[in-house]
Design a protein around this nucleic acid. Structure first.
Lengths: 219, 219
DNA sequence: GTCTATAAGGAGATAGAC
DNA sequence: GTCTATCTCCTTATAGAC
């Protein structure tokens, strides 16, 4: 409070915008609603970010840069530790899934917002928003696809690409619908924490990724 | 042309709206853009649908009613044919997946639009749109959950619920990103047809759904 | 850097003629 | 049923004072 006499308007805008975009999407959220929540003047947005699109870009960069980096770092670290041997599917999945799932840790409302934003963008078509993220996600996608290919040499490349799509899709959906899932889980006193979700996903996806293909040898 | 002298404005609006909502979301699409594409007057929308929300409801009902019905019918038919025995996981998955995937058959641009709409809505949070669909989807969700529970008695109910979320999530994502996936598949001369996708998903999900749980017997 | 004031236009929705 | 015309509100964005 005293050490931070400037209320850091830029950061407050970013947080409010993140929440608004996650809840209402890019078009659905309005700058007026954002600046109201952030307690700043409308013109401040334009001073710091230039435009609504610029604000969205800043929101995404702030979150997805570190997230992507953490996924890649985990993968690289596991690969170094394995010293050339292929990683287990479970290890690769953990590197993929844990960073986004940890962001969505239960109690923190702010973090849940981020995850909804991720899930939402994953299905938002044909927008400037998409291209913005696609480039970054491409690198992650490729890295994990290569790792999985080494770990699953028997799965044809074309099938593996499909399977990886299923993993990303299920992840995006879970992140996006976390609130509903938690509510439903509460009825059955079933705890929803990061480890639990990670474990569920790892078991499920590892089995799916390893499944023998119907067409094995025929293509 | 002669037999249909009335240009069926209502239907034209529905089609244009479907495309617009799929591309831009509920807030992102504007009625003016829709009536322009449909070649009708703005007021026509209000005459037939009352409001933008009413139009969205009509768009969804037209598509999701039959879709949901087909999923349930297929499940029921398989259950009758099995005469009390639990169905195979593959059979259940086919009843879940084939109706939406068939709608997305390759060449038809119109049908692809529908699928993007589905995928998009699945991740659109906290909107009137959501509630509108949730009720209908709930019935389907429950039916398939019950069927899978009978077929997979060894999988704890809580784990099974998670796994079914993954299936719906991956489905929504694939529907939504079909365009991109097809483009990428084209690079590797890998055909993308309904049967292929269905087969990929069935193999992957069946293995995931059947996977032994880490916590078996511990809960 | 932060503000007020306002431009410029698009949005959903409606009234009322035909 | 279909149209024109318009209302009202809210949007992004900017100009310019402080």
């Amino acid at each position: 409070m005293r050490t931070m006499p400037v209320p850091d308007r830029r950061a407050r805008i970013l947080e409010a915008a993140e929440r608004a975009f996650a809840e209402s999407g890019f078009e659905g959220a309005s700058l007026r609603q954002i600046v109201l929540a952030a307690g700043v003047n409308l013109a401040t947005v334009y001073y710091y970010f230039g435009s609504k699109k610029g604000l969205m870009e800043a929101v995404l960069k702030r979150r997805f840069g570190p997230l992507r980096q953490e996924q890649l770092d985990r993968l690289r670290q596991s690969e170094q530790a394995a010293r050339g041997r292929p990683l287990s599917v479970e290890t690769i999945l953990e590197a993929m899934l844990l960073p986004p799932l940890r962001l969505a840790v239960c109690a923190s409302a702010q973090r849940q917002v981020v995850m909804r934003l991720i899930g939402r963008i994953a299905t938002e078509p044909n927008r400037q928003t998409q291209q913005l993220l696609r480039g970054q996600h491409e690198e992650v996608r490729t890295a994990f696809q290569d790792a999985l290919r080494r770990s699953l040499p028997k799965v044809p490349a074309a099938d593996l690409r499909w399977r990886i799509e299923f993993v990303w899709g299920a992840l995006a959906f879970v992140l996006c619908n976390r609130r509903r899932i938690e509510k439903e889980a509460a009825d059955t006193r079933d705890p929803v924490d990061t480890d639990r979700v990670l474990s569920e996903m790892t078991v499920f996806f590892a089995a799916g990724l390893r499944a023998p293909t119907l067409t094995e040898g025929c293509r």
